[in-house]
Amino acid sequence: MNTDQKVISVRNLTKKFGAFTANDSLSFDVYKGEIFGFLGANGAGKTTAMKILCGLSYPTSGEIMVAGLDVYKQREELKKNIGYMSQKFSLYEDLTVFENIRFYAGIYGMSSKEIKAKSDDLLQKLGLVHARNKRIGELPLGWKQKLAFSVAIFHNPEIVFLDEPTGGVDPVTRRQFWDLIYEASRNGITIFVTTHYMDEAEYCNRISIMVDGRIDALDTPERLKKQFEAKDMDEVFLKLARKSNYQE
């Protein structure tokens, strides 16, 4: 993690849907190569904020830079420099492994030669060479998930957004998945991840916890546990969530 280089810089991000405020003046920075956990209960406003950072939705107000680009004015440039993976894994089940890679890499403008060389390396690394021409539908969930992540960073983006990437996957596979995330982070790709699993939160370099559209806590897992006098992240999360209910 390199704190000199901000990959995401958010100042006073506010998003309103009519009278409802989904994001209330969020401010935070994410640094190059960092694994940044974006936590919050359902409906806390995580998805809304993530969509704005990905250029899928405009904020109501605020200054937001992603990969050094303005989300208002440089949306097209921005989209080339980010990757995205959702909880649905988002590969085409009726296409083969290689066809999926070729399609997604193709829409990011990679050349056929580049795609071929890089996909050979990738399949080698994932141990999926034999499955190159198998349809995604035939693969087990864990493989799909690893592949979906690899496809999301195939075009070498500065930052990859992961929206609850480990939903419905067993703990062993989840652990293996996090190995891939660490590797990407070592290669300088910034990881912005939302999750429901508190054990996963511990793997992040820093976490922010959203409650009712605001960021109520932002620090390393260690310091957050100390701050909230909690034995694990679960407890931290529950204490914050309870606070939210109490205020209402």
Binding site: L56, E76, Y84, Y92, G109
Partner: peptide
């Protein structure tokens, strides 16, 4: 439904 539309919308397309 499959969530691939999201990926396409995030892409430079």
């Amino acid at each position: 439904e499959l969530g691939t539309m999201e990926i396409l919308l995030v892409s430079p397309l």
